Amino acid sequence: MSRRFKVGVIGCGIGRSHIVEGYVPHADKYEVTALCDLDETRLNTVADEFGVVRRTRFSDELMADPEIDIIDICTPPALHTKLVLQALQAGKHVVCEKPLTGSLSEVDEVRRAESGSKGLLMPIFQYRYGEGVAQAKRIIDSGLAGKPYAATAETFWRRTADYYDNPWRGRWSTELGGVLMTHAIHLHDMLTYLLGPIERVFARTDTRVNAIEVEDCVSASLLMKNGALASLTATLGAAEEISRLHLAFEHVTFESNHAAYSPGDGPWRITPASDEAGEKIRALIADNPPIGRRFNGQMEAFYAALVEGSQPPVTSEDARRALELVTAIYHSSETHSDVILPLSETHPKYNSWRP
């Protein structure tokens, strides 16, 4: 009989989505046995919905529970680092929402703790999961796509004053950033997942949509290590919400679907540059294995890693690359300069990208 891991979820906002999409569809693999939230009404509502008996306002109780195998952290961003470190020290496996930490120094601290813990750490980047992105990844990795030329990533979402009528949103101390951190980080991770690491960044950020501390508009120009050029644009003032990747390679062009919160889903528009390339691509993806979308796919892949004792499907190194891009964009916007990656501990924003 396969092992069933017991999960404690801290934070019942986005945590509910983890349960609905990630754990309930894999009831043979996971059992959510405890919930934690400061809001008792929300805590009890979600616990009642899924029949979870164990409920608490104190995360320490979950950390100390020897029956819990996995701590799933879905709190506001400023609490992530402390809870991840605590869970790793307790020997738990850890799932953590974005951003993993609030600085590059913190993510390096987490990675050191991870190396000495028996638990596996998996940051959440659910946009990597879906039929569309899986097909694109397979084509690129096979070499059939050829030389990468250029790409765009657009996060055009809408957030109004009502969204920021919340004690932690829109503030540097609690949300840690704006559209770049809380909204576009997933699509930017998908870009590097398909196109590889970044070499240089030039960017501008601004606050144009809402009366908040953090940015809600971003434009950035990237030079990838493979020579491709990419541009990132994000705003929280769009009338129509879309997330879109567009990638041009030597032998094929990819365009994601435009669903704001699930751009990895199929179908993607895959346009071969020739009939010959098209035939090879169609043959390659004809037997593409099915993959769950969003949290469903990521939690299924995490289970395989837990059982096999292998590397998680999304790693702390992936989270560091995402936060390195965030740091570079903020620094470039502030200094009006080109920023070369990777960023080391000597960089002026290594300990914090916040102003």
Rank of each mutant, 00 (worst) to 15 (best):
residue 84 V to W: 10
residue 235 T to H: 00
residue 51 G to D: 09
residue 114 E to A: 12
residue 49 E to C: 05
residue 58 F to D: 15
residue 241 E to N: 12
residue 299 M to G: 00
residue 292 G to N: 02
residue 250 E to T: 10
residue 6 K to D: 02
residue 38 L to V: 14
residue 228 A to Y: 08
residue 70 I to K: 04
residue 250 E to D: 15
residue 178 G to S: 01
residue 219 S to D: 05
residue 69 D to K: 02
residue 21 E to F: 03
residue 273 A to M: 14
residue 284 L to K: 13
residue 325 L to A: 00
residue 231 S to C: 05
residue 53 V to Y: 07
residue 232 L to P: 00
residue 272 P to I: 13
residue 166 N to V: 06
residue 166 N to P: 04
residue 185 I to N: 11
residue 72 D to G: 03
residue 156 F to K: 15
residue 265 D to N: 08
residue 152 T to Y: 06
residue 87 A to W: 11
residue 1 M to T: 09
residue 35 L to G: 01
residue 96 C to R: 07
residue 187 L to G: 02
residue 138 R to L: 14
residue 188 H to P: 00
residue 256 S to G: 07
residue 211 A to T: 12
residue 139 I to E: 03
residue 167 P to T: 06
residue 213 E to T: 02
residue 249 F to Y: 15
residue 259 A to I: 06
residue 116 G to V: 05
residue 155 T to A: 12
residue 320 R to F: 13
residue 70 I to N: 07
residue 60 D to S: 04
residue 24 V to N: 05
residue 21 E to K: 10
residue 87 A to N: 08
residue 207 T to F: 04
residue 331 H to D: 12
residue 268 W to L: 03
residue 103 S to V: 08
residue 345 E to Q: 14
residue 246 H to F: 11
residue 63 M to R: 03
residue 68 I to W: 07
residue 83 L to K: 10
residue 88 L to S: 11
residue 262 S to T: 05
residue 352 S to M: 09
residue 217 C to S: 00
residue 239 A to T: 13
residue 348 P to N: 02
residue 285 I to L: 10
residue 75 T to C: 10
residue 213 E to N: 06
residue 204 R to H: 14
residue 7 V to Y: 04
residue 242 I to D: 09
residue 152 T to C: 05
residue 90 A to C: 12
residue 250 E to Q: 15
residue 50 F to G: 09
residue 339 V to C: 04
residue 285 I to P: 06
residue 58 F to H: 14
residue 220 A to C: 02
residue 308 E to L: 13
residue 49 E to P: 04
residue 34 A to K: 14
residue 240 E to V: 14
residue 218 V to S: 01
residue 138 R to I: 05
residue 91 G to R: 11
residue 51 G to Y: 11
residue 159 R to T: 10
residue 194 L to P: 04
residue 71 I to A: 00
residue 19 I to E: 05
residue 316 S to F: 13
residue 50 F to Q: 08
residue 9 V to P: 05
residue 136 A to K: 03
residue 208 R to I: 12
residue 179 V to P: 00
residue 202 F to G: 00
residue 301 A to V: 01
residue 310 S to M: 02
residue 119 G to K: 02
residue 81 T to N: 11
residue 15 G to P: 02
residue 261 Y to I: 06
residue 189 D to G: 05
residue 85 L to M: 15
residue 62 L to Y: 11
residue 181 M to Y: 07
residue 75 T to A: 03
residue 186 H to C: 13
residue 207 T to R: 08
residue 247 L to K: 09
residue 55 R to T: 15
residue 172 W to G: 04
residue 57 R to N: 12
residue 258 H to P: 01
residue 246 H to A: 11
residue 190 M to E: 13
residue 117 S to P: 01
residue 140 I to E: 10
residue 156 F to N: 12
residue 86 Q to K: 14
residue 7 V to R: 05
residue 220 A to V: 01
residue 53 V to S: 14
residue 213 E to I: 00
residue 186 H to A: 09
residue 143 G to V: 13
residue 336 H to Q: 13
